[in-house]
Amino acid sequence: MSTLTRNIARSQETRTRRRPVRPGKIILHLALAACAALMALPFLWMMFSSFKPLDEIFRQPPTFLPEAWTTGGYETAFAGADFVRGFWNSTYIAVTVTVVSLLTSTMAAYAFARIDFRGSKHLFMVFLATMMIPAQLTIIPLYIIMGWLGWIDTPLSLIMPASLFSAFGVFLMRQYIKGIPRELEEAAELDGASRFRVFTTMILPLLRTPLTALGIFTFLGQWNNFFGPLIFLNSDANFTLPLLVNQFKGQYGADWTSLMSATTLVAAPLLIIFAVAQRQIVDGIALSGSKS
């Protein structure tokens, strides 16, 4: 037994000891709270502006909290776009993509991290290389492919590419899987466990934290995705939320109150989802050898 593991064992015994509150802690909390508030200011401004009458949004000097609360922006937003439908379309696409792409990219990541096959490194570079061509340029050929598949103006045009390919997700999960000590799997494999069993019963549970993080950002990315839906969707029954929001932003001017209300409607659920899901990251179990 190495000194390290002994120390780990000892540290686990001592982990419960209480530390007194130090002044450094207070400064830390004050600083973090100030930074977090500053970062969130534009979001809060957007949210409060959605309850302001138009002339107050642009008042100089600006107001932060609305002086005269109004829900007029929300009324015109709901009158001008079918948000219930859009909400369903966005949720459906984002949830499907998140679930399927987490699975497919973790599977691929496992292959890259753990299976020694010929061309592994080159194939991995191909995956990385796909991130290096700007998406705007490949949109025309992709549109033609979607036309062949008959997926134009259907959610499939958004779901399938994102579910079945994510260089980003594969790369991220590969990094995490490579960070998991190998002894456990080696032992299990010697005992005759299949790779599938190792993957599902040993690797996946250890990836709860990064899977949650990747899941959150996959969901966010899909929820906020603007370019794909813009190009592939035509009928407004299929429109996702970002497209609906942009209806309030015109060629020249914008309908500011409705725009602020609509953007808040779209963004607020994300923060709620994040608030709930982030517990997973915090409570996520440590991946390191300390589990043994």
Binding site: G80, G250, G253
Partner: peptide, 8 residues
């Protein structure tokens, strides 16, 4: 392209 209100 449509400006606010024009779509409807």
């Amino acid at each position: 392209w449509a400006n606010p209100g024009e779509g409807e």
